[in-house]
């Protein structure tokens, strides 16, 4: 457990946000779209200068920002990369984000990076290891992080704990928040044959600080079908009811629409975010 209280970060509205990508920098500043917040990939701003940081600081002056990492390799059995962590901390000090997040995954071993989100075996050993790593990161950064469930395409024979129980245990042990990616739950459930509703129903509301929505791609091969989390499309129709189910149970949560491959025009991306807003508004109206 962390030895001192951890700062959560600036507040963020329970509204939809969008991922900020370089081709949209100017449009976002010119149009100031009606979104509650924006999220960026932390590593794109580790350079500490030039065009990326110039635009991020200007966008930050208008919106809350969430820093989402893909490179901490939280689940790796290598030592944590202190240089990577230091750069993240510098960026946090500069941007003052509402959330800092990374994944329930690993991406390196023996110093060699695959730069992909590889799944962990869900075992007691991996749980103890992952919990320690999250604690180390939270200690270093002096704040809580959010851990996101990845899309996965394989399960190890040795896994003995369902992913949803593993994720919940990580939050219970470390005090971290959960970034619940509803699309990833849907994709993994389809790929492994478990019930997506059971997954989302078993994540306690108090842990869920943020939700991700994104589009996936259906790959059909000779040996069968697999869903791939490509972020290259609108959110799939099948994912919206799952999202509504999550909101019904845990209330409104800041929700990010990720669409960063085959990036659409900003207005199209914002429209997708407004659909998430309308799901939240519908709930609110019904409750009133």
């Amino acid at each position: 457990m962390a030895s001192r209280p951890l700062e959560v970060g600036a507040s963020i509205p329970a509204r939809a946000g969008i991922g900020l990508r370089a081709p949209h920098y100017r449009d976002v500043l010119d149009l100031l779209p009606r979104v509650g917040w924006l999220e960026v990939h932390s590593e794109n701003y580790f350079g500490a200068g030039g065009r990326p940081l110039y635009y991020l600081e200007r966008v930050r002056a208008q919106y809350p920002i969430s820093l989402h990492g893909v490179g901490l390799s939280l689940g790796s059995t290598d030592a944590l990369d202190l240089l990577h962590l230091s750069k993240l901390k510098e960026l946090i000090d500069r941007i003052e984000p509402c959330f800092v997040s990374d994944h329930l995954a690993w991406s390196s071993v023996n110093g060699r990076y695959l730069n992909d989100l590889l799944p962990l075996p869900y075992t007691e050993e991996a749980l103890a290891h992952f919990g320690r790593r999250v604690e180390q990161v939270q200690e270093f950064l002096g704040r809580k992080i959010l851990v996101e469930n990845p899309s996965s395409y394989l399960q190890y024979c040795e896994s003995s704990i369902p992913e949803w129980e593993f994720l919940r245990a990580v939050a219970e042990i470390t005090g971290c928040g959960i970034l619940l990616d509803v699309n990833n739950v849907y994709v993994s459930a389809a790929n492994h044959g478990f019930d997506a509703r059971r997954y989302v129903d078993s994540i306690p509301a108090r842990f869920v600080a943020e939700i991700h929505l994104a589009g996936f791609t259906r790959n059909v091969t000779n040996s069968g079908e697999i869903l791939i989390d490509t972020h290259s499309k609108p959110v799939a129709e099948e994912v919206w009811p799952l999202y509504a189910r999550v909101l019904d149970r845990i209330g409104e949560v800041p929700t990010l629409v990720e669409w960063d491959t085959d990036l659409p025009p900003l207005t199209r991306l914002v429209a997708e975010a407004h659909r998430a807003d309308s799901v939240m508004e519908y709930r609110r109206a019904r409750a009133a």
Partner: peptide, 17 residues
């Protein structure tokens, strides 16, 4: 052989990664 093959063979699943 260390990957579950339910629905899709383990080798095809590794291929995705």
């Amino acid at each position: 052989a260390r990957v579950r093959s339910t629905g899709l063979p383990g080798a095809a699943r590794l291929q995705v990664y």
